[in-house]
Simulated assay, not measured.
Amino acid sequence: MSADRIGSRDVVELILADHRRFEDLFRELRSSEGDRRQALADLSALLVAHAEAEEAEVYPVLRRKAQVDDEEVEHGAEEHAEGHRALLALWEAGEPGTEDWDGKLEELSESITHHLDEEERTILNDARDTVGDAQREELGDAFSRARQVKLDADCGRPEYVRSLVASDNH
């Protein structure tokens, strides 16, 4: 979701808007009425673009802020890698609605929900408290640009997710 769609350039608000979109997409993935393959493609692209933009543009700046816990930032990056592994497992699980697919969907959902909860309680609250409005807007602009570059590069394809998992395992 771009800054103009949510009416804010604040990086915290932009990240939270993505988090709510993840939750919507998980609901779509659980519903037998929708296009689950399209919902998976949408979720995959947004998850990957979001994580890579956070790690490239947001986490390095927050890490330099003394009041933002470096361990929490590092843990957030580790949880992105865990999410990539669970996402790849879902891509590889076969047809939507099968027992294996449903199981992999729940593993991905649990991994992402855990990460969102922790990130919102720690990193994002710390950023609200320690990063000024102007810098949060600068970070929001950088996050939005990096995220869009990844989305334009079709970062959600299974092959790209597989390459991320392979690089995370090295």
Rank of each mutant, 00 (worst) to 15 (best):
A51Q: 09
D154H: 11
L25G: 05
L139D: 04
H115L: 13
L14C: 09
Y59K: 03
G94Q: 06
Y160A: 11
A153S: 12
E82H: 08
A77R: 15
L25I: 11
E13D: 15
E159V: 12
V11S: 03
R128H: 05
L62V: 02
D117R: 03
A3V: 12
R27N: 14
A3T: 13
G76K: 06
E78H: 13
G132I: 05
E137T: 10
E33P: 05
R63Q: 11
R5W: 06
E119N: 04
D133E: 15
A53P: 07
S8F: 02
K104S: 02
V165E: 11
E71R: 10
D102N: 09
E82F: 01
G97C: 04
R5P: 02
D126V: 08
G94V: 08
T130F: 08
L139S: 03
G132Y: 01
P60G: 05
A53M: 06
D10V: 14
L47R: 03
S109N: 14
L88K: 09
R37M: 08
R5K: 14
A146W: 02
L87Q: 02
W101L: 01
L90A: 06
L90G: 07
I6V: 15
A53L: 07
V149S: 04
A66E: 15
E54A: 06
R85V: 10
T98R: 05
Q148H: 07
A93Y: 05
S32I: 05
E137L: 09
A134Y: 11
L108K: 02
E110F: 03
S44T: 06
S44M: 06
S2D: 14
E52Q: 11
A146I: 07
W101V: 01
E74T: 15
R128G: 05
E99V: 06
V48M: 03
L16P: 05
L116D: 03
I15H: 00
L151C: 04
A142Q: 12
R121W: 02
G7V: 08
R21D: 13
D152M: 06
E138S: 11
L46D: 07
R145Y: 03
F143K: 10
K104H: 04
G83L: 08
V58Q: 07
R21V: 13
L14S: 06
A93T: 03
E95H: 01
G34D: 04
E119C: 04
H170N: 14
A127R: 00
E120W: 00
D126P: 08
E137P: 05
H170D: 14
L40N: 00
L25Q: 09
G7F: 01
V165Q: 10
K104C: 04
E119A: 03
Q135I: 06
A56S: 11
